[in-house]
Write a protein that binds this DNA or RNA. Sequence first.
DNA 1: ATCATTCATGAAAACCTTTACATCATCACA
DNA 2: TGTGATGATGTAAAGGTTTTCATGAATGAT
Lengths: 380, 380
Amino acid sequence: MNDVKVYTEAKEGKPLGRVWRSALHLLEAGKRAPVVCGALRVQHQKLATIEDVAALAGVSIATVSRALNEPTKVADETRRKVTEAIARTGYTTNAMARSLRMRRSNMILILAPDVGDPNFSNILVGLETEASKRGYGVLIGNTQNDASRETDYLRFISSNQADGLILFTGHLPYGFGQDGTEGRLPPMVAVNEPVPNADVPFVGVDNFEGARIATEHLISQGHKRIAFVGRSGSREVNRLREEGYRKALAGAGIAVDPRMIIDGDGTTESGRAAAELMFVRDVLPTAFFCVNDATALGVIISLNARHYDLPRQFSIMGFDDISFSSFVTPSLTTMKQPRHRIGEAAMELLLQLLAGEKPHEQQVLLRAELIVRNSVARVG
Amino acid sequence: MNDVKVYTEAKEGKPLGRVWRSALHLLEAGKRAPVVCGALRVQHQKLATIEDVAALAGVSIATVSRALNEPTKVADETRRKVTEAIARTGYTTNAMARSLRMRRSNMILILAPDVGDPNFSNILVGLETEASKRGYGVLIGNTQNDASRETDYLRFISSNQADGLILFTGHLPYGFGQDGTEGRLPPMVAVNEPVPNADVPFVGVDNFEGARIATEHLISQGHKRIAFVGRSGSREVNRLREEGYRKALAGAGIAVDPRMIIDGDGTTESGRAAAELMFVRDVLPTAFFCVNDATALGVIISLNARHYDLPRQFSIMGFDDISFSSFVTPSLTTMKQPRHRIGEAAMELLLQLLAGEKPHEQQVLLRAELIVRNSVARVG
DNA sequence: ATCATTCATGAAAACCTTTACATCATCACA
DNA sequence: TGTGATGATGTAAAGGTTTTCATGAATGAT
């Protein structure tokens, strides 16, 4: 139970602080040392600046800057002196000053409705990896679909703290663009959920194609009565997956039975409710194609609770391949989203935009991969 | 398939750009307008600056700054004019300039070995919420336990891009402090994994107490032969939970059987392996207390595969309460980590440090809560 | 009426870079 | 030798804030 140590104390006796250096400079030049000099205001440990390095290396600050940013433009010998001075002072360039001057922060703001969502967090890894590789940092903003929080986060953009934006929200941040001609959009890329009615590049999985493949897999196992769980009027992702499902049925010459299409918002609870509803109505499929794994899990829970033998009596197919899909009993056959690559691709696209390049695609659709586990059985 | 729109084009005809304003100023003062004036260099849409606001309101920039930051210090009428000018220009203060001047960025860097870890991402929500509430932004860094990446991220600190640090790594970033007296530690707080041999405030769950409660719950259900799955020499968390387990046994007068303590690194795979090992050795417990839910899941998978009837034949207890714990069959009885509160508390502590306050506790231990589900049954 | 205070404001410095432009030396070529 | 070109470096101007100090007006006390 010892006390907390406060680390922000002043640090004294630093050999090459700015005050010291510049006083020296003035004295050498024969001027009177400024009052500032004796100051006790050395809080927060003064860090070495480019001036300190320049003085130590005996060159101008411009040369130091060049040695750092365009090494070819300075003579070998000079460069050597500069690098040595940098090492001795422990200099790091002040990112704030740099950003101020260059009008770019090398930061990307990521806006997501729920940072805790496992589907999101894995994409985040890809985003972060790619950004960091290119010298960018990522700032994260958790909006919880709250309009005021969305607007609030825009301060990062408008105050130059972030150069670009990655959107998981499926719509422009509230208070942006949509409400008039004024607000110019910053470089941004939408991930997972495309942004309707706005010209925002999109990176995500090919939901239509993935759902088609999934459904075809069920068909290939002999299923003809296949339910789709998770229809939603509002969510684009759900709509696309339903389309893929319909396409596959049509391709196999199976008529769509409207009673086999159940509403759902993609939560586990909605999956459970959907299954229960089917039992109540007593129109039963042989297989459930669920809009996502969370939904599929709900269906499995419901069927397990009714003591069905899975997958013998019912097959279940998911979409996403989230972490626990392999641990459920029966382990879930599903479509795997290449989350890491989605993150990388999105960041890559955004950085291209930032660099002023004009990327070829307005959309990057990545293929979902069929993962066969134990929740789908052959029938008939 | 239309082309990507590039948003960074110059914006022309902006009424109150800086160039315009300052040229006017110079002309009024009777000086010659500088060459800069006619420039076409209006890239990236010039944003309104504090000078624009000042000019429009007819006051000095100092007053505008004060009106914004210390409103009580400016006269009501002046404040009104300033706020109106701000509204008309759409001014936002440039965070870079502000940070440069104030030597603080209002950013917190979060260093985590795996951003995708669900246990982490939920804490992140708490961290982010609290930070955002206090006007801070969070930057995330995914280290993957890679020393070079850890070092790399320190540039955010040393270049003033972040004011403080939240550590999930369980050790100081490589290249920091440990290798000598030089590197002064920035304000930081460790979460989840305490930092050994360093005076870093810690926020996390009370693992010892939680494990004790968990084990006592098993004992209260009549279990006497209780295995501990997940002993680890290197991980502090595992060690503490094992201690809690031992304490509970001791409290109940049950001798610790060393064959009941199985190594494990906390992964699902390690849980499965541990259970298999016990069957091979044929020293079987009536209950498994697992170091975390992932491990417990492995145990459950193993037992399910052997077609045991759970929890009738074996009870399983986890720790953490991660998302799928309620979905496994049998659903997992476990200790719930107050993840959101951990995040909030950690951020709160860090911001206290940053404000120069001296918090009372060096450690904040939050209580884990027993969540009773279906994986533990009464025995005997 | 005079003086001391308080209050509101402005001028200018400081924060630390990057970079356009100027300078100066060197070298090649006519 | 003169002329250009080339290359390395320095000077100084932004970039947009916050904040110290100075100024001047208004207020209150004597």
